[in-house]
């Protein structure tokens, strides 16, 4: 008999706790951003497609569905770390097949050579190129993500990727980097 009482008591307890937990799960549900949004927020939004997906969001979706996290060269190591942190996996080195991490660059059109073909305009994922057919094109540096997609379509190869020049305003107090001049 005692065994039955014990079983009944345990069963009732289990039911009660289950109900409490179930209630708590519904009542105190934390509304987190969907995973894809969180991943997308980490990605650098260059929309360069180097990962093999047509933009950052599609890659975010792919990661959420189990793709590797090391396919983003513009984001580099820091992005991989953040993604690893979010996804709860070990950080991996960048996959070389998708490119190398590089200094930040922006596209630059040599304007006197531009023939106004609009090909680069169509390639630009963020509409950072201004120009019209048969008119000279130019790049809005502040909008350029450095994705590289405009370089290939150019029929006359007048687009270069140039590293951003260091500016005093964005200098990072790296005292070691100051070239010391030797005087007499």
């Amino acid at each position: 008999m005692t065994i039955i009482y014990a079983l009944i008591a345990l069963g009732v307890l289990a039911l009660v706790f289950g109900a409490v937990l179930g209630f708590a799960a519904v009542r105190f549900k934390v509304e987190a951003d969907p995973l894809v949004e969180q991943i997308d927020a980490i990605l650098p939004q260059t929309q360069c497609g180097q990962c093999g997906y047509p933009g950052c969001r599609p890659y975010a979706e792919a990661i959420a569905n189990g793709d590797e996290i090391n396919k983003c060269p513009p984001g580099g190591e820091s992005t991989i770390k953040e993604l690893a942190n979010l996804m709860g996996v070990e950080p991996k080195p960048l996959d070389d097949a998708h490119g190398q991490e590089d200094v930040k660059k922006v596209a630059y059109i040599r304007e006197d050579e531009c023939i106004g073909c609009t090909k680069c305009i169509h390639a630009c994922p963020v509409d950072a190129i201004v120009g019209a057919t048969r008119q000279m094109h130019t790049i809005i540096i502040d909008e350029c993500t450095g994705c590289d997609l405009c370089v290939d379509p150019c029929p006359v190869d007048c687009i270069d990727m140039v590293p951003l020049k260091p500016k005093a305003e964005s200098w990072k107090w790296d005292l070691e980097s100051i070239p010391v001049k030797v005087v007499e």
Partner: peptide, 8 residues
């Protein structure tokens, strides 16, 4: 000679 770089 060179001048030494230091932080304030």
């Amino acid at each position: 000679m060179t001048f030494k770089i230091a932080s304030s």
